[in-house]
Design a protein around this nucleic acid. Structure first.
Lengths: 225, 225
DNA sequence: GCTAGGCTTCAACAATTGTTGAATGGGGCA
DNA sequence: TGCCCCATTCAACAATTGTTGAAGCCTAGC
């Protein structure tokens, strides 16, 4: 596929420009309002493009959505896998600690070129939307992310040899939920904390989530089953 | 308001029946497809009722949504507050433990009359949808749940005297996210675990989430800031 | 029995939806 | 120059959207 050109047009001048502009607009709007809350005309307006062009490039609406979702998913998977491999390598021959695994899972989200990139923030909100949606959202998540997640769970299994299988998966579920809500950036935390915390402060989110879920996972190993 | 009659019609025979049937249908469909994914006609069809009747009873579409959301929110708040008060009373004069607080927060969700009630499950999925939605969802959550959440955070503050404010709120954020995702019942965990876990097994969710987030909160108190 | 009034239905509205097929543009290649 | 192919625009489609106002039903009170 052509998802290589996430941030850089690749060939003929600006041949792709309209196409990627549509993707960018779709990413932003889908993240804000969900699939059904966005019309193709709104996307076209945001991208400053004719309505029919979205259909021409991506086919049906749900295909545009999937293309938007997929575009950065591969990047993310690659970065996470690499971080995990590095953690494994630097801990060898021991298994990496839970903390190191959590770092590998969360660090690439924030410490790339994209912490300051609003498009990536939109994408995270889009993932949050998909992860919590009941219908084909779950299938999308599984299709694109499960192989990567499997590797992380495998690492956790080695780091927590006493943990029952079930608890590992529920632990990941907690991690995923916490992450998802943080990335949805609903602004609810701001109001709840009276300004002490900011939903947009993903750096702080990273710090606190890592500490929280690390303890959550380590407890699994200790509890008597 | 009339949100007292959640599961039982109160007065004139079946005067409320069509009205509550609309609420029930809206609850189910909004939970499954989100706000924009549901049409008033679909709700009317599900409730076996004329289209115009929803407008007659609830006004505009977003007012129907809010009515649906609010109906059970008050119940839920009452149960949780009561559970928290009991935990405080039975621990007095000490502050209740983190574990006891988490129990008070989570127990009422599952151990009422409604673990087997599919309507309550729909409602939980609806809350999950609202909690993660970017637009007015956050405002709805804040409006209906924040006072109750404030009380729980206050209890946590006393149970974790060394915890910095910021960490308390981010901890709650993790808890809320984990809970939300579990209640969305996306079925993703089933596939990921290869059948070991079931998204529909809310009892198991309860057990694992309580253990996970209790450890997550307790770690806050230990870490040197 | 009659009437008032809330509940329910019917029919229709203007606006908007995703999608399409034909027409237009323009650049590369023969 | 002329031709072809790709990207883009234009105009329109049938279907569906939320919402409304007028008309019918049905029970409670007189």
């Amino acid at each position: 596929m052509d998802s290589v050109s996430v941030s850089s047009p690749q060939d003929g001048a600006r041949l792709e420009s309209r196409r990627t502009r549509i993707l960018d607009a779709a990413e932003k709007l889908f993240a804000e309002h969900g699939y059904d809350g966005v019309t193709l005309r709104a996307i076209a307006r945001e991208a400053d493009v004719d309505v029919a062009l979205a259909n021409y490039h991506f086919g049906r609406k749900h295909e545009l959505f999937e293309a938007t979702f997929m575009r950065r998913a591969e990047l993310l998977n690659r970065w996470r896998i690499r971080a995990l491999d590095e953690a494994i390598a630097s801990a060898a021959p021991e298994a990496p600690s839970v903390r190191a695994i959590m770092d590998a899972y969360l660090y690439p989200l924030l410490h790339g070129p994209h912490l300051s990139d609003p498009a990536w923030r939109s994408y995270y909100a889009l993932v949050a939307y998909v992860n919590n949606s009941t219908e084909w959202g779950g299938k999308l998540m599984s299709r694109f992310f499960n192989p990567m997640v499997d590797r992380f769970i495998d690492a956790l299994r080695k780091a927590l040899p006493n943990a029952p299988e079930e608890a590992l998966f529920w632990g990941y579920h907690c991690l995923s939920g916490a992450l998802t809500l943080a990335f949805a950036q609903t602004g609810r935390l701001d109001k709840l904390s009276g300004g002490v915390c900011s939903s947009e402060d993903l750096e702080a989110a990273y710090t606190h989530i890592v500490a929280f879920v690390t303890a959550g996972f380590e407890q699994i190993n200790l509890s008597v089953e």
